[in-house]
Simulated assay, not measured.
Amino acid sequence: MLNLFLLQIPASALAAIFVTDDQGRQISLDAPATRIIALYGAFNEILADLGREDLLIARTATDDLPASIKAKPSIGTHLRPNAELILGLAPDLVIQLGGRGEAMEPVRFLEKRGLNVAVFDLENFEQLFSVMERLGTLTASTDQAAKRIAFMRSELARIEAANTAPRPRIFFEARYPTLLAAGQGSMASEILYRAGGENCVAAPDKLVRLGEEELLRLDPDIYLVQEGPMNPRPVPMAERHLFRTLACVKSGQVHTVDQKVFSRPGPRSLEAVRQLATIISNWKKEVRP
């Protein structure tokens, strides 16, 4: 009976699996992962997009997508997961987001105890596609990953082909009243460009602290206010007295967007491009009647 069962499993699913993560380390699995814990919510959404949300066995405290994740046990936060809980759940793959030194502390702890931990960067669409491809490999979902990547590339190309000059200068507010803006190194900045605009903040960082005087100097055409965990209750523009002179405020080009759509890299980043492309299209109708 065992031999018959083995014959029904594709040979590729029985072979050892290797990928290189974004720390340059080789992640080796004896078989496709079946028990996964992601320490950053975007990876849950990517796996769900590949049709593999059934492989997720836990979540971090703030994860709510896909909906099925809410029934999973919580293992703490992205930067401070409960390592003992993770060990007790016996995952065959843990996934962490790169880019912050604190994120590597739980990685080292779990690796020393024999767990496979992959660290991936997610700062732009090309990195997103690379992560999708490697997670497809690790979960025996390469065909689905290839299809989803091809579809997203096609949609981005279609939206970009429809982009015509001029490109509006856009300011993306990550937080206020301590004003933080999306810099050039963020996924939000790439979404601005792919949708047909440009980030008026030139700094290369993901997040940039700015004074209100600098914002007044930039005087963007469109102002995006993200609403979410980082900016939970955005202050209405009418209550920001220095902002009244901004051209975008006078023209009504201030728009509130969902932080988890615009700032969390993942499958919904394409939806962010679509939403912003519509905003930009309407702006062009006003400036070029």
Rank of each mutant, 00 (worst) to 15 (best):
N3Y: 01
F5P: 05
L6S: 01
Q8A: 08
S12H: 12
A15R: 15
I17H: 02
T20G: 02
T34D: 04
R35Y: 03
L39H: 08
N44M: 09
E45F: 04
I46S: 01
L47Y: 07
A61E: 13
T62S: 14
D64L: 09
A67R: 13
L79R: 08
R80K: 13
I86S: 07
I86L: 06
L87P: 14
I95M: 07
I95D: 05
Q96P: 13
L97N: 02
G98K: 05
G99E: 02
M104N: 09
V107S: 08
R108T: 09
V117L: 12
A118D: 09
V119L: 10
Q127R: 13
L128K: 10
S130W: 06
V131K: 06
S141W: 06
T142P: 04
I149H: 03
R153S: 02
E155R: 13
T164Q: 12
P177S: 00
L179K: 08
A182G: 11
A188Q: 15
R194C: 03
G196L: 07
C200L: 08
C200G: 03
V201P: 10
A202R: 14
P204M: 02
D205T: 13
D205P: 09
G211C: 03
L215G: 02
L224V: 05
G228M: 10
G228R: 11
N231W: 03
L242H: 02
S251W: 02
V254S: 04
V254P: 12
Q259I: 05
P265H: 07
T278Q: 14
S281A: 10
N282W: 00
V287F: 00
